[in-house]
Design a protein around this nucleic acid. Sequence first.
RNA 1: GGCCCGUUCGUCUAGUCAGGCCUAGGACACCAGGUUUUCAUCCUGGCGACAGGGGUUCGAAUCCCCUACGGGUCACCA
Length: 508
Amino acid sequence: MLFAPCSTCSDAVGPMVTLMSEPVRVRIAPSPTGTVHLGLCRTALFNWATARRRGGKFILRIEDTDHDRSTAESEAAIVEGLRWLGLDWDEGPDVGGPYAPYRQSERIERHHERAGELLAAGHAYRCFCTRERLDALRAGQEERKETARYDGQCRDLEPDDVERRLAAGEPFAVRFRVPEGATTFDDLVRGTVTFAHAEVDDWVMVRQVGGPTYNFVVVCDDIDMRITEVLRGEEHLVNTPKQLLLYAAFGAPAPAFGHLPLMLGPNRKKLSKRHGDTALGDYRANGYPREAIVNFLCLQGWALDGATEVFDVATFVERFDPRDVQKAGAVFDFDKFKWLSGELIRRQPLALVAERCAPFVVAGGLATEGELRERARWFEQVVAGEQERILLYSDLPGRIAHFFAADEAVPYAADAEAGARKHAGRIETLAAFRAWLAAQDPAASAEVLGAGAKAFVAAAGLKLPALFQPLRCALTGMAGGRDLFDVVVLLGREHALARIEAAERRLA
RNA sequence: GGCCCGUUCGUCUAGUCAGGCCUAGGACACCAGGUUUUCAUCCUGGCGACAGGGGUUCGAAUCCCCUACGGGUCACCA
């Protein structure tokens, strides 16, 4: 439908808006009960991409209805962690928005109000059953190998009876009255899914003590916040009929649902702490670039074109469609994650890599932040030689520690020293090379020194390793690594000479 | 156990909706070469999968059914 152009504000806004499909509103609704799990990050990423791609809104809502387990620290960690990944939200507890508050614990009154509506309309009923009775009921059902479910004892109490018990102050829970029939919905990821209502229990919406439960508040809030699409983990698939029934009871349009495949551990079960790190903070602390984390998370259940593995988040936003998401669970491949990390680091600008590595160098005790800043150009050159060799930012300190060592005490790795000692004439060769190096122009470049060194070796009638292996050990104490003359230049000639002289004693 | 979902190389996946373009493509890992003073990068090659069985069809990884296996979920947790 088209609107007649408004005379006072006649631009394209009116018609444009109506021509576009209704703006999508998606959300991520974590419970602040622990560390920021990678599964949450992926769900957030997919929802965020949905909103950004289609010009909609992405909302952060904190599900802290479990008072005992929810903490402010955890909420802060979620906000901080998701932002660190590069996600942003249009509405949330920290940024506000038109449907505030965005913390469920602050919406309790509204939930009670909504429960009252369902009670009044007969879609819900009060249940006076005690915990003991329910426990006994379940125990009996389990013993007879029956499906544990509520037996409907309070489903059709006489109104008088209810009044009397209320007046007597008997505590009650509110249960949803599940109707006969079945619920079918079109899952964005899985296609048509059907649940028979006989399988859906008359579940508790409001506890006797402790307030409204998840399945109830999530729907209340999603309705109030005008959520149009729900992308969440597959563990929620079985909750969907309960929630759809609630939308129907409220007479509210239901959002589209899409259930993402679970992220699995090597044991093919839900990724858990037992089989490696699951918290975003672990990867962050281990030196994974945020870009690699995002890229890898994209690859868990989704593929760009089946061939391109490395891509940026803008490309993901441009191309992501929940309908392309894989249905089967994805086993978390730690090796590939690490490979991707290295791949991303190699593509980053040198200055950025240096900046990201610096904290790890400081934490490794090699230098202070101030020292690195003072020698920023030098440090960048040090990083330059390692950029293509490290997989994680945290790999750097171990690889460049020798630059910070005392010349006479460069730690020699066993394989480096063994390689050096293979050469019988090593001491003489090193001494001769030291004399040669001392005679070179102190400002000579690595290229010039390298070419000169090769000529030196040839003139001495040696093979290249006869010089390079002992020399590499002398300068770096390592068996492999960057161009040796880069090391000489970075070290400064005096230090290089001192290290060679020390090696002449240490390798004797 | 009931219900629901799923099943392509060891792993992540393309191809499945619109059956022939698939003697099933890419990536990680692994193996073998090459490049490099060394290590890493990089290049080349190799290994390696449509869970099984029926059907529909001229033709099935793709559609249908059954079986097997795997996962999720069965709370007054979220």
